[in-house]
Simulated assay, not measured.
Amino acid sequence: MEIVEEKNRFALKDGDKEIGEMTWSDAGTERMIIDHTFVDPSYRGQGLAEKLVAKGVEKARKENKKIIPLCPFAKKEFEQKPEYRDVWNR
């Protein structure tokens, strides 16, 4: 499986099949809003959604941005992972 960055989204692919995604929108030049995270039900329970959110955190760090996690799943990840506090725009 691989995660591919496209315009304002990370697509999770298993071969040619897209099995998940995380989307964001830019909020100015210093913030990004994670607004949606999805993994195909048949692939759930493997930590794939967590990997998508982690990829967003990695992108924010690289671009020196803060994240507003509006997606309920992403918000839960930020609440549970203290290591994301450096990029969390609260």
Score class of each variant (00 low, 15 high):
M1G: 13
M1P: 11
M1V: 13
M1S: 14
E2Q: 15
I3F: 03
I3L: 06
E5T: 09
E6K: 13
E6S: 08
K7H: 12
R9S: 01
F10K: 04
A11S: 15
A11N: 11
L12T: 04
L12N: 02
K13F: 11
K13V: 09
K13M: 14
G15T: 00
G15W: 05
D16G: 04
D16M: 03
D16W: 00
K17G: 00
K17S: 08
K17N: 08
E18W: 01
I19M: 02
I19G: 01
I19C: 03
G20D: 07
E21G: 00
E21D: 05
M22L: 15
M22C: 15
M22N: 05
M22F: 02
T23V: 12
T23P: 00
W24H: 11
D26K: 13
D26E: 15
A27F: 14
A27Y: 14
G28A: 09
T29K: 14
T29E: 15
E30W: 10
R31C: 10
R31T: 08
M32S: 05
I33K: 10
I33Q: 10
I34V: 14
I34K: 01
T37Y: 01
F38H: 12
F38M: 13
F38K: 12
V39F: 06
V39P: 00
P41T: 11
P41L: 02
P41Q: 08
S42R: 09
Y43T: 01
Y43G: 00
R44L: 07
Q46A: 11
G47S: 02
G47T: 04
L48F: 10
A49S: 11
E50K: 14
E50I: 00
E50V: 03
K51P: 05
K51N: 12
K51L: 13
K51G: 10
L52R: 04
L52I: 05
L52W: 02
L52G: 04
L52Y: 08
V53E: 04
V53H: 01
A54P: 00
K55W: 01
K55P: 02
G56C: 10
G56Q: 04
G56V: 02
E58C: 03
E58Y: 02
K59Y: 15
A60P: 03
A60F: 05
A60R: 03
A60H: 07
R61A: 06
R61I: 07
K62T: 11
E63Y: 02
N64F: 06
K65I: 04
K66N: 09
K66P: 02
K66Q: 15
K66C: 07
I68F: 13
P69W: 07
P69C: 09
L70P: 03
C71N: 07
P72M: 08
P72C: 07
A74E: 11
A74K: 05
K75G: 07
K75L: 14
K75Y: 13
K76N: 12
E77W: 00
F78V: 10
E79F: 01
Q80M: 13
K81G: 06
K81L: 05
P82G: 14
E83D: 14
Y84D: 02
Y84E: 03
Y84M: 04
Y84G: 02
R85Q: 15
D86F: 07
D86L: 09
V87S: 08
V87K: 04
V87G: 07
W88C: 07
W88D: 11
W88I: 06
N89A: 15
R90G: 12
R90W: 11
R90V: 14
